[in-house]
Write a protein that binds this DNA or RNA. Structure first.
Length: 448
DNA sequence: CCGAACAGAAGGACCTTATG
DNA sequence: CATAAGGTCCTTCTGTTCGG
């Protein structure tokens, strides 16, 4: 609609190809990637060095690039590169120590745990680059050719540039099929060549200090392949498709806050109210203001898991109880009898939560409300569903690691002490984040 | 033990709807 | 009409299983 960019792909641009919806969508996505890529952060300071290739050469051509040119141009360099890299590698092996400036973790691949902020940023950018590279190498839409069958036969039915290109993925096979690996290593080599030297003109990563290896890139490429294969199977294999659709519908159902509770076909989802996701997002918006005022970073407690439940009715079939529950909520929120149909959610906080953690959340909510009121100086209507607390908590144990200051001593004493298996289940970080849990750590007295 | 494969969960970008 | 809630789609992350 009008949201779409004024694309250059008006009918005369691509010679013989008219875009199918998928192709168009793809082109648009490319456009978005392209626009998004060069500015991961630093909205203000336009460092001329970093941003000088405003148009990242590797992304320039939109749907139909000229990969062959580029490939052949680079291929020679590639051989030298491989040789030199191999040599470098063997040197390193000889040293047995990462003699480089590497900070004990030169590999970015495989779980981004223990990575610095810079490493995470670079990792993201690299993954995106690999993906774009793979798309251009394999042609944009191998999954949408969907000739319903006879996949293997015609490799060049459409006049799609690829005269010499053996570059396509075979999603019927696994990653390690030589043909598949060939594509991946080629993409990895290209990106590695373009990005591993900060002084090169093609360099366009957000940080020059982060080290990475060619095998990191290969790893990303493999992940991309698996992801695409999953999608492909969903489109071609009826069984897989059915399974995926079932899952998708369960996801949707789980997402919808109403209806889900009680009498659901999927009892295991009965507990997933998830306005928690949105609650978290709302609070995230107030983080900066909180930091300004309190000099510490509350982001550490903003995990979806830790947001309070918000329920519209107790989990019971007893209508009378439900009615009574509604009455209580109305009383708390000051709604009149006439407003009995107004929706109110009850906030049910987790029992394991310490007072300090609850206070942080309350403060975030207060700030969020304030900033809203300020920005919309025209007295915006606040139509959010009413939330009220009856003081109820639930006793489900936390399922993810907690910061020590978040754990309520009282709850722990009552619920956990004497239940070894439950004790086993709860894991704590060893240290509190800076600024938290200082006046009353978990081991200290309970505050009130 | 490790990597490959996979399924499910979480997260983010984007679009739609309802309402003052 | 502008805005925020609500919803969908897609990507990425995580945990588990299996075979060498």
């Amino acid at each position: 609609m009008n949201g779409l960019p004024p694309t250059t792909s008006s009918p005369n641009d691509p010679p013989t190809i008219h875009l199918t919806p998928q192709q168009y969508a793809f082109a648009f996505q490319q456009f978005q990637l392209h626009m998004a890529a060069p500015i991961p952060h630093a909205p203000i300071s336009l460092n001329p060095v970093l941003t000088s290739p405003v148009i990242d050469p590797s992304l320039l051509p939109v749907p139909v690039p000229t990969p062959n040119e580029r490939l052949s141009a680079v291929e020679n360099d590639l051989r030298e590169l491989k040789a030199s890299v191999a040599q470098k590698r063997s040197n390193e092996d000889d040293d047995q120590k990462p003699s480089k400036k590497s900070k004990k973790n030169p590999y970015i691949l495989k779980e981004n745990k223990n990575l610095s902020v810079e490493q995470i940023e670079v990792r993201k950018v690299l993954m995106r680059k690999i993906k774009v590279e793979l798309r251009t190498l394999t042609g944009t839409n191998e999954t949408s050719d969907c000739g319903s069958d006879s996949d293997g036969e015609r490799d060049t039915p459409t006049a799609s540039t690829s005269a010499s290109s053996t570059l396509s993925f075979d999603f019927e096979s696994n990653v390690d099929l030589p043909a598949n690996m060939a594509v991946i290593t080629r993409a990895a080599d290209l990106i590695f060549k373009e990005q591993n030297d900060p002084t090169a003109s093609t360099f366009s990563l957000p940080h020059t200090t982060v080290a990475f290896t060619n095998s990191d890139l290969v790893h990303f490429g493999k992940n991309t392949f698996r992801s695409w294969k999953k999608k492909y199977r969903g489109e071609h294999d009826p069984d897989v498709r059915a399974m995926q659709e079932r899952q998708a519908s369960r996801d949707r159902q789980g997402m919808r806050k109403k209806e889900v509770r009680a009498s659901s076909d999927y009892p295991e989802y009965a507990q997933t109210t998830d306005n928690r996701v949105q609650l978290k997002q709302k609070r995230l918006k107030a983080v900066n203001e909180y930091k300004n005022q309190h000099n510490k970073d509350p982001a550490c407690i903003l995990e979806t898991e830790w947001m309070s439940d918000e329920i519209s009715a107790p989990d019971t079939d007893d209508d009378q109880k439900k009615a009574e529950h509604r009455r209580q909520l109305r009383r708390v929120t000051g709604l009149s009898h006439a407003q009995k149909d107004t929706e109110v959610w009850e906030v049910v906080r987790p029992g394991f939560q310490s007072v300090e953690a609850a206070d942080v959340k309350d403060e975030l909510d207060r700030l969020s409300k304030l900033s809203k009121a300020k920005s919309g100086r025209k007295k915006k209507a606040n139509r959010a569903v009413l939330r009220a607390s009856l003081g109820n908590t639930h006793d489900r144990p936390p399922t993810r690691k907690l910061w020590p200051f978040m754990l309520s001593r009282e709850w722990y004493d009552v619920q956990v002490v004497g239940h070894p298996d439950l004790k086993e289940e709860i894991s704590l970080y060893t240290k509190n984040p800076e600024g938290f849990g200082e006046d009353s750590g978990y081991t200290a007295d309970v505050e009130h």
